[in-house]
Simulated scan of single mutants.
Amino acid sequence: MGLLHQRIGLAPKWYIGIYHKYIVSLLPTLLVHCEHQGESAAAALDTLFKIVTFDTCLAIDSYT
């Protein structure tokens, strides 16, 4: 996806910024699903952030 964004001139800051919307939209569902399960919620958040970070790295690598 990063190559496509680069080709159309979309700067990385715009691509990365959308992750905030992804996370914000997923948090309520994640928290409801893991309600009263502190360790499960923490593990789910950790996984979510790992996925987002990994995808961000893949996209940024495409720009260089």
Results as ranks from 00 to 15, higher is better:
residue 8 I to D: 03
residue 26 L to G: 07
residue 10 L to E: 04
residue 31 L to T: 00
residue 15 Y to T: 03
residue 60 I to H: 13
residue 44 A to T: 09
residue 52 V to G: 04
residue 49 F to K: 08
residue 50 K to Q: 12
residue 13 K to H: 13
residue 16 I to Q: 07
residue 9 G to F: 15
residue 51 I to E: 06
residue 57 C to S: 11
residue 58 L to G: 09
residue 3 L to H: 10
residue 39 E to K: 01
residue 12 P to W: 11
residue 14 W to F: 14
residue 39 E to C: 06
residue 63 Y to F: 15
residue 46 D to V: 11
residue 37 Q to R: 03
residue 22 Y to E: 05
residue 47 T to H: 15
residue 56 T to H: 07
residue 5 H to K: 11
residue 10 L to V: 14
residue 43 A to R: 04
residue 39 E to S: 14
residue 17 G to F: 06
residue 39 E to W: 06
residue 15 Y to W: 04
residue 64 T to D: 08
residue 16 I to D: 02
residue 48 L to M: 15
residue 39 E to Q: 11
residue 7 R to S: 12
residue 20 H to T: 12
residue 37 Q to M: 07
residue 8 I to F: 15
residue 35 E to W: 08
residue 53 T to N: 03
residue 36 H to V: 09
residue 26 L to C: 08
residue 46 D to H: 04
residue 20 H to K: 09
residue 7 R to I: 09
residue 45 L to C: 14
residue 41 A to R: 06
residue 36 H to F: 08
residue 63 Y to I: 13
residue 48 L to D: 05
residue 55 D to K: 10
residue 29 T to E: 00
residue 14 W to P: 08
residue 20 H to D: 08
residue 17 G to V: 01
residue 36 H to Q: 05
residue 10 L to M: 14
residue 19 Y to F: 14
residue 43 A to L: 09
residue 33 H to G: 01
residue 62 S to I: 10
residue 19 Y to N: 05
residue 30 L to T: 13
residue 36 H to M: 02
residue 12 P to L: 02
residue 35 E to R: 05
